[in-house]
């Protein structure tokens, strides 16, 4: 499923990287610990987190993730936003808590199982 479709169906707000919304999303990854994401997330995963620190962009870019969804309506720090634009990493926001958002993504067929 394309990121743009997920964005529409779950009413996510795009705050950066709108040029990369046609990326294909392979699966989902949820974590607030950067070391965990670096170790375990896979290419084209959509990353659900409430970390707003600018390092999340570097991690997403390095791991070639499909994008980042911030939960709980978290607003990213200014540096984070700038970096996301620079690196063209899709940064989206949802007012939902992580559990609820992941549940809805899961129902759309975005899996969390590793192949």
């Amino acid at each position: 499923m394309k990121l743009s479709e997920i964005m529409q169906r779950l009413q996510l707000e795009v705050i950066a990287g709108s040029g990369s919304l046609l990326r294909e999303v392979n699966g989902g990854y949820a974590s607030d610990l950067l070391s965990d994401v670096i170790a375990n997330a896979q290419e084209r995963d959509l990353w659900v987190t409430l970390q707003t620190h600018q390092n999340i962009i570097a991690v997403a870019s390095m791991k070639e993730l499909a994008g980042i969804v911030l939960v709980n309506a978290r607003e990213p720090e200014v540096d984070t936003l700038e970096k996301a634009k620079e690196e063209n990493v899709p940064l989206l926001v949802s007012p939902l808590p992580a559990f609820e958002l992941i549940g809805r993504l899961y129902k759309l067929g975005i899996s969390g199982m590793r192949t």
């Binding site: 990854y29 549940g103 969390g112």
Partner: peptide
């Protein structure tokens, strides 16, 4: 052994 994402998905479902 499941990942966070999968755990949430299953319980939500």
């Amino acid at each position: 052994p499941l990942l966070m994402y999968e755990s949430c998905g299953r319980l939500y479902a």
